[in-house]
Amino acid sequence: MNTSPKIRKVFQGVATRQQMFRMFDRHAQRPDRWDGDASPRYAFEWFEITDAENDYMFEVLPSLWIRGSIFAMREYLTGSVTSVFFNLRIDGAIRHFHGYCDLSDNSSVEHMRVAIVDRESRPVRSMSQKERLEHIWSSTADDYRGYAGDRWPQRNRGHRTVVLYGGREGTFLKMLDDLTDDEISAKLPVHLRHLPSSIAA
Rank of each mutant, 00 (worst) to 15 (best):
S108Q: 02
C101F: 05
R193P: 15
S126V: 11
V162I: 09
M127I: 12
E59G: 12
A28P: 01
F47P: 10
V163Y: 10
W46S: 15
I184Q: 15
I7L: 08
Y76Q: 11
D55L: 07
G166T: 05
M20C: 07
L64E: 13
R30M: 03
S80Q: 07
R132E: 01
E169I: 12
F47S: 13
Q12T: 08
V10M: 06
T16V: 02
R145F: 00
P62K: 12
Q129A: 04
D182I: 05
D51H: 14
N156L: 06
R157S: 03
S80W: 06
F47R: 11
E134D: 13
W34S: 00
S198T: 11
D91I: 06
Q19E: 06
A72V: 09
Y147W: 08
F85Y: 10
T140M: 01
S4T: 06
Q12K: 11
N156F: 04
L77W: 05
P196G: 03
W152A: 00
S39R: 05
R125M: 09
L61I: 14
F172R: 15
P62I: 12
V163L: 13
W46L: 15
H111M: 08
D25S: 03
R122E: 14
L64W: 08
R41E: 15
R132V: 00
H135Q: 01
P189Q: 05
E169H: 15
E134F: 01
S83V: 10
I94Q: 14
A115V: 06
H159T: 10
E59R: 05
W137N: 07
I90D: 04
E45V: 15
N54H: 14
L77K: 10
R8Q: 08
F71S: 12
L192P: 08
H27V: 04
G166F: 03
V10N: 06
H135E: 09
D55I: 03
R95M: 04
M20E: 12
L88M: 05
Y165V: 14
E75A: 03
A38W: 08
T50Q: 09
S121C: 07
D142R: 10
K6H: 11
T78G: 05
G79R: 01
Q154T: 03
S63C: 13
E59Q: 12
H98W: 06
A52M: 06
R122A: 11
H135A: 00
F85K: 09
K6M: 11
R74I: 05
M20N: 08
V14Q: 14
E169C: 14
Y144D: 11
A28D: 04
S4D: 10
R160T: 07
S185C: 12
A200N: 11
A201W: 06
G158I: 07
W137C: 02
P153I: 00
N106P: 08
T16A: 09
I90Y: 02
V109K: 11
S185A: 15
R89N: 07
D143R: 14
E134Q: 07
S69G: 11
L173S: 15
D150P: 00
E53M: 08
